[in-house]
Design a protein around this nucleic acid. Sequence first.
DNA 1: TCCTCTCCCACATTTGAATGGA
DNA 2: ATCCATTCAAATGTGGGAGAGG
Length: 597
Amino acid sequence: MLQEKVSAVTDGGVNAAHAPGLCEIAPEPSNLGPAAPASDQHSNEADQSIENIKVFLHERELWKKFHEAGTEMIITKAGRRMFPGYKVKVTGMNPKTKYILLADIVPADDHRYKFCDNKWMVAGKAEPAMPGRLYVHPDSPATGAHWMRQLVSFQKLKLTNNHLDPFGHIILNSMHKYQPRLHIVKADENNGFGSKNTAYCTHVFPETAFISVTSYQNHKVEFHPTPPCTVQMNHDHRQAEAWQVLLRNRRLSMLSSCQITQLKIENNPFAKGFRGSDEGDLRLSRQHGKDYPVISKNMVRQRLVTSHTHLTGKLGAGLLQAHPQVLPHYQYESGIPLANSDTQDTLANAFPSGREPGLLYHCFKHRDNSRHLELGCKRPYLETAPSAVSEEHYFRSPTSYEPPLLSHSYCGEAHGTREACMYGGEEGDPGVGGGPAGVDSLAPPSLNCNMWASVQPYPRYSMQAVDAVSYQPFATHFSSAAAAASATMPHHSVSAQRPQPPPPDMTIYAPVGTQRGLPPAHSSSSPCSSSSSSPALGPGNRAPHPSLYPRKPGTSPGPLPHRDFSAFHPQSPQPVRDPPYQYPMGMSNTGVHWTDS
DNA sequence: TCCTCTCCCACATTTGAATGGA
DNA sequence: ATCCATTCAAATGTGGGAGAGG
């Protein structure tokens, strides 16, 4: 957890709380200002109302930069952190009330995407959603004072594409669009485990949506110091000069931070080694046996875009007009509009969201024409893109969905059966924390409670699905709250309107192998048996390297069992006994407003 | 057989936590 | 108790290549 000062938070606001259970987003009056106060239905309890909680996304400007470029998040088998990190500042909590903060990542739509012609395009229907997992902040539960004292960082949350991931990372499908969410669950004794009324709220920052990839989709091109053929073909002095300008501008700072890899390299300390410098380029080049600098493709784009101003002024009718096929290509790629484009176009272009019906229609219509999937992708990067403009017709709806920039807050109340506490693997076990009575004993240091619960990506937004869920015997108020919060997550119409049967894999997954030196429990029957903390725990509790636990064929955890587990783990290294934790999703009566009991 | 697309892996580098000595 | 240097695991994007599928 970062120990940053509260004042370091620079991000925007949180919008008002909405009536829980509504699967639609109420329009927000403002995108930028601080959160409008929640529509408080319990004004006499304003101080303690969870609706009063405001969440500010940390590094929101950075997130917005990524969002405008079309955020990509690498997912790997071993798990990859998100960058930018998901950090928030929370205000409005009751300092003495205990809260649980957790995050999950849900599909933003039911499309599969592909990166084509420097744009994200719908490439078909989404693959079946992975069993959802919740990432519970390691400090949970903690008092409001604790949460408000500093930034709340979910930086150690990891994403994986390993469907059998034993480490508790959040499982995602590659080339799909996802939306992280933050849930705040009240966990004090008056509204605690076993309580009928669990107050919670969900916050969504649309700018944190991303497309998961196994490798960044803007690959490298070799930046030869000699002009490319498109320039060489025409021995025009002005073009040669233009190329010199390009070379000269290699080190220009980005006017438009538009490329994901470059944004990550520039902002992620761990990627410092890739930051641009002539020496760095040469180093990378030599590393790959090249005598000439190798510049990332996105850098080329940036430099071209950056140089556009210079070029247009300097070349006029020269290069750009002599080769009109070049400029249109760059003009639109990656949603980087030039002077005439506005932000909305940028956003729409970067993320062809499926939330906008018209856009969807265009995408599918285009796809049905069996054209766009073949366009551009096979062309060398510097080749012309004659379809670039026409593509815009299909992927830039004039009414493109522009996501609000504030977090959407959804408050709700979970009304589910709570026959067991999620902490209560052993009631009375102070380490495990168990049960309603264990709440008070759950001082933050004693409980590192990363929990990984299955979340149904689509059906959870469906009230029909909610009703259809058969409760698992180990429901907890917490999971109920999380599930309820999940159920209130607004979803675009395609998913929300698709009734889903009760999920067959309504499972819980346990964090495993998080204590140093302790192997993860691979047994799906009791995956928590030897684990004591989660991968996201603080220093000293590093997750073991996956290579320490090679999966032999046939010994893999296998498909997630119908009953899987997740548990909060004490820091003590003792094995957690099989915690009968079940986190049925979507069990909340989300049509009921939350209440503080 | 060829091509495209997606994914995996090794690599060099940087960061930051842990450790030990002064 | 504090400071500093060292060590090492974790994290990062990249290029090359494997493998599946058409």
